[in-house]
Design a protein around this nucleic acid. Structure first.
Length: 180
DNA sequence: CCCCTGATTATCT
DNA sequence: GATAATCAGGGGC
């Protein structure tokens, strides 16, 4: 998925950082322990967005990737806005006059909450299938990819399931959960 | 740059 | 009552 472009409502974001969340046996996954709670979309068929509320105030998006019942998904952690800059900057609370006022370009969609806001996510988008109002252009070629532990998770904190394109300034900084 | 804290809600204990 | 797949803003260096 790295290098692919997620499109919604005239904004396009090229993904530079993602994280894999596995199914019922991944302690860091919302699917851990089975289909209970908010993550039931993860257990549905692939190609859907799983949208969840993070820390009460943010919305983050995953792409469901495994067959129904397996519940693995990929969190869209960061990207580079490549189209619809004015809309995306406005959603982040910045003015746009050729460049964002008050924020550097690579921070418009850095971090899952910021990416969700720039993309214009709504809670109602949970479960939606790609191909309608959300599109994803898969990358035509792959360059170098690096991997490491997932950001902020308190369990399974060592598993190298975070992937990013090295050298991209829109990639977020790694933070280990202090209780991990 | 660093560390600390508040915001805000679904889920878990 | 506490925690979390987070972020912004403040103070200190």
């Amino acid at each position: 998925m790295l290098g692919g472009i997620i499109w919604h409502d005239n904004v396009g974001i090229r993904l530079t950082e993602v994280e894999a969340y596995l199914g019922s046996d991944d302690p860091a996954s919302h699917a851990f322990g089975g289909d209970r709670g908010r993550a039931s979309t993860m257990f549905l068929s692939p190609g859907r967005l799983y949208v969840y509320r993070s820390y009460g105030i943010h919305l983050a998006a995953n792409l469901v990737c495994s067959p129904a019942g397996q519940a693995s998904a990929v969190l869209l952690r960061a990207g580079e806005v490549i189209a619809g800059h004015q809309i995306a900057a406005g959603r982040r609370g910045f003015c746009w006059d050729g460049r964002a006022d008050g924020v550097v370009w690579y921070r418009l969609a850095r971090g899952p909450g910021n990416l969700g806001r720039a993309l214009g996510l709504s809670p109602d988008d949970d479960g939606v299938l790609l191909g309608g109002c959300f599109r994803f252009d898969w990358p035509s070629h792959r360059g170098r990819v690096e991997c490491g532990p997932r950001v902020g998770v308190s369990r399974a904190a060592e598993r190298p399931l975070r992937f990013w394109i090295p050298g991209e300034p829109s990639v977020s900084v790694y933070r280990r959960n202090p209780r991990a």
